[in-house]
Write a protein that binds this DNA or RNA. Sequence first.
DNA 1: ACCCGGGTCAACCAAAAGGTTGATAATGCC
DNA 2: GGCATTATCAACCTTTTGGTTGACCCGGGT
Lengths: 218, 218
Amino acid sequence: MKDIRVLLVDDHPVVRAGLRAMLGDFEGIAVAAEAADGGAALAELSRLHTLGEPVDVVLMDLQMGTGMDGVTATGRIKAGEAGQPAPPVLILTTYDTDADILAAVEAGASGYMLKDAPPEQIRQAVLAAAAGQTALAPEVAARLMGRIRNPEPVLSAREIQLLELLATGLGNRAIAKQLFISEATVKTHLVHIYGKLGVDNRTAAIAVASQRRIIRRF
Amino acid sequence: MKDIRVLLVDDHPVVRAGLRAMLGDFEGIAVAAEAADGGAALAELSRLHTLGEPVDVVLMDLQMGTGMDGVTATGRIKAGEAGQPAPPVLILTTYDTDADILAAVEAGASGYMLKDAPPEQIRQAVLAAAAGQTALAPEVAARLMGRIRNPEPVLSAREIQLLELLATGLGNRAIAKQLFISEATVKTHLVHIYGKLGVDNRTAAIAVASQRRIIRRF
DNA sequence: ACCCGGGTCAACCAAAAGGTTGATAATGCC
DNA sequence: GGCATTATCAACCTTTTGGTTGACCCGGGT
């Protein structure tokens, strides 16, 4: 049986070395190439494709220090930009926030693993991905289950808009002026936001909202 | 010449494998042991110390998923809890915010490197640490230089500590309890912080501080 | 010895934010 | 037509923050 050919995509040389060593120790898995960001990954895939040596699985980090991020790259790979058929993309990242997971799945990822997973788990995930199956880390699966059972309150567009101004440090009066509404309305919105986020002051609201990636992060 | 014996401390098996492979390729450096968190690191150091095989350098991550974090572990190593003389601790982490750097240096770290550094840079840092010198990543060094040239507002360590609690959404009373100081003192610190950052409320302070990478945010 | 900056605390007042109730209006859905 | 949701505003009150002044202690440097 031929080895499963893997493309590593991660901006950290240390992590790439670790995966190379780890995967190299496994039977039936070979590291075909590496890339430091999404753009390089697309280029590598194209190159290998035209060489007639397509990769079977892409192991992709989400946050790259510089260059194209993992979600974008996944989407473009799945769109066939690096040759058809597009290989399965297995996300291997550090964080497991709802927004990250959803974005990755929407982009077409066929798995989501965490970097602190034991080697055996990563091996299983690569095999599953190569076989066309999906592979979720237990932690990730558990979180999705919890979310389905108990869906978190959804903020309205207006509330998110307010939250963004809030995060810039504006006071209620300034926010009111920005949005052409009265200060009273701002306060009403804030009360609703606090309720939905489970907090009782603006700084905590910002902390929770940015942690859940409801608003942008710096 | 005897090899430099290194202890790896990182909660990610992947990263440990990467460092093991990377350092193993270098002449004069050998990985003596590994640990998945600060507690395990202390235990390993003690064990090796009593065996008469002390390590020469500790390569330590800052944020461990679970267990004792890197700053705490560094402090306790430097306090001699794992045998005297305490080995130099080289921080190898992902983020380079003022808060992280200051905490590490205060705990007694003799270097601060970033995980996306090229292998050669990491090698140099390990050699420097083993020789009793300090080793800062160029990015970190540049930031410190910029701060020296610029007499811009320099926040004290205490003020940064406050800022971090602030960003979690705590009120003044809660912050006071956390730091074992009075609410009056918290307010005094806040006024100073506002002055230095050029703002007049807590949310704006958080916005500015995270934008200037004084504190870290998700 | 002296001064200075950092950290600590207190008292006071003004301003802002938080919490509650209640009301109006537009929207979309069953 | 009713119903729920969202957005809007007001009045009222309590709590928290912000701003100021002044004070004490400690450690480092001139």
